[in-house]
């Protein structure tokens, strides 16, 4: 509990780090902040080309099916892979002055979150412009599921950044982990596909559902692609798993941060 109070006291530091991160991301490029929008648009264009022309899929409007799941996944993957080095990157500060170290991964996750929110402007624009449409009632659930994903990302970023201080190889290992994790999460394929093949393996099916990102991604897809109110069981397991990951992350980080200054 003390941690939350302390981090709250340092909120101005969090904001200033988020601002620096967002401002620094596209610094020096001609189009600057516009890249936040251009980048996902171009990605979408590539997916559309690939999946509606070259690799035709059995799923209707596959590029949208993929896109609404991929954008939240990229937030997660950035929090994990990028977040891993966020404490090391500030080692001079960590070595010399006191502030709650949680501020570092937290502000990194917040800046990635803001980035995702901006990308969602593009998502909505595409959904409306293409005539695919949105269900306003379902979209009401979007902020909730975004908060849940935020919790997962905080937990993962805390774990990744703290462990990387002691074990630098993790920075490289994590990008492979992120790739494997992406394939284990129903992003490029529907949940139903896995359910069918795991029908006879009840245990495996349970293990597969322990992935905290699975209910999150499913909820995003239900809201935006299927345009319906997400299944409450699904939301429930997303919240529970999200909280567990977050709490583990916070506890591990709190414990490991004591030795940060001596590791550099």
């Amino acid at each position: 509990m003390k941690v939350f109070k302390e981090v709250y006291e340092y909120r101005e530091m969090v904001f200033s780090l988020v601002r620096k991160e967002l401002r620094g991301r596209y610094k020096g490029s001609v189009l600057g902040f516009l890249w936040t929008f251009i980048n996902p648009l171009l990605q979408l264009l590539v997916y559309t080309m690939v999946f509606s022309v070259i690799m035709r899929q059995g799923i209707e409007q596959y590029y949208l099916f993929l896109f609404v799941a991929l954008v939240p996944w990229m937030f997660m993957s950035a929090s994990m892979v990028g977040g891993a080095s966020c404490v090391i990157a500030q080692k001079d500060m960590v070595k010399k002055i006191y502030f709650p170290r949680e501020v570092l991964p937290l502000s990194y996750v917040i800046s990635s979150f803001v980035n995702m929110l901006l990308t969602f402007i593009v998502v909505f624009a595409v959904l409306i412009v293409t005539g695919f449409g949105i269900n306003p009632l379902a979209v009401l659930f979007l902020p909730l599921i975004m908060m849940v994903e935020f919790l997962v990302c905080v937990g993962i970023a805390f774990l990744a950044s703290a462990l990387t201080v002691y074990f630098r190889d993790l920075e490289h290992i994590l990008s492979i982990v992120a790739m494997a994790w992406q394939f284990l999460t129903p992003i490029m394929y529907p949940q139903s596909m896995v359910q069918e093949s795991l029908e006879k393996h009840a245990l495996l099916w349970k293990v597969w559902n322990l992935n905290p990102m699975t209910p999150v991604i499913n909820a995003y897809r239900e809201i935006l692609y299927f345009k319906r109110i997400p299944d409450f069981n699904n939301i429930g397991s997303a919240i529970v798993l999200g909280l567990i990951v977050c709490v583990i992350g916070v506890i591990v980080f709190r414990h490991l941060q004591k030795g940060f200054a001596e590791e550099f």
Binding site: E9, Y10, R11, E12, M13, F15, S16, K20, M93, K96, I97, Y98, F99
Partner: peptide, 30 residues
């Protein structure tokens, strides 16, 4: 702690902006 002075100073930002960044590292709110 006055152990490390000017922590987090950014050379491209103005003195005033840096006051805000630096003071935030001491745990001050806006």
């Amino acid at each position: 702690s006055l152990i490390e002075l000017g922590a987090g100073f950014h050379p491209d930002m103005s003195g005033r902006e840096n006051i805000y960044t630096n003071a935030s590292i001491f745990g001050l709110s806006k």
